[in-house]
Amino acid sequence: MSKAASGVRTSDAEGIAPQAWSDLIVRRCGLAFRHIRMPEVIGIVHGQMRARGIEHETEYYTLLARPGDGSGEWDALIERLTNHETSFFRHPPSFDALRLHILPELRATRPPGGRLSLWSAGCSTGQEAYSLAMCAIADNAHGQFTVWGSDISHEAIKIARQARFGRRSISTIPEHYRQRYLVPINDNGAGDFTIVEDLTQRVRFMGTNLVEPDGFRASHDVVFCHNVLIYFSPAAVTQAVARLAASVGLGGYLLLGPGEAPHDRPPGLEPVIVNGVRAFHRRTARPMEIKS
């Protein structure tokens, strides 16, 4: 065990101070909670602890602080700590910028027949990924593209893969998209809808923790990351933004949520305003270096 993990700050003989839990959660998954939410977070941790059959906080803390989590304990905890709020075409200006500017530009500059890659980072239950897919297929019905959706919550990914949405959920999809890409399911009278197969087979989902380095190192043309950084600690924001920036290919764009401007500019990208939306762009050709 590392020195940091064994140096547990305890509030009393038996318990763990809320700050220690907060620090551990930030360290392991980057999630930072406002002070007002800490009692709730501690409640969630305790609930998970009891479900695991562990009585003492110190024991559970030690288990969670252990490097590498073979027990799946973090997965279970993250399910309960994350917010799965999302919707189709959330923040429409971002999607307008994609439809009206970014996709046409990419189509013009990419070689014909080239495959576009779009990534919805922190896709939750998949609505953003499917929204991206709708824009991409509407832009070029025969164009080849893949939309990747990733989230830290495996439960959310499971729901995303089912591609099953309620009547209220789909109400934010523009009418002409709704008619083309949604099909009602008539199995139990709940009035649910699913996405046409033409779209679902171009959308892939995976579980990914943005603050943990892993093998997902593709080069994407468009990276969407909306309302994800707001849950992260400043350090985790920097780490996640660096990772997002690194996955933007030449000529690609990174679009963050409104108000999610990172403290540090995404490395290697230049800020641009696309159709009124602030985005980050990797130039096709590197600017000439100025010799002094």
């Binding site: 917010n83 709020e85 309302n227 707001i230 849950y231 400043p234 108000g259």
Partner: peptide, 17 residues
């Protein structure tokens, strides 16, 4: 309540920024 929680997180982020 989930949406409002997200809104609260967003506002908090903006406030910090």
């Amino acid at each position: 309540s989930v949406a409002i929680e997200e809104m609260a997180a967003s506002i908090h982020y903006v406030s910090e920024n």
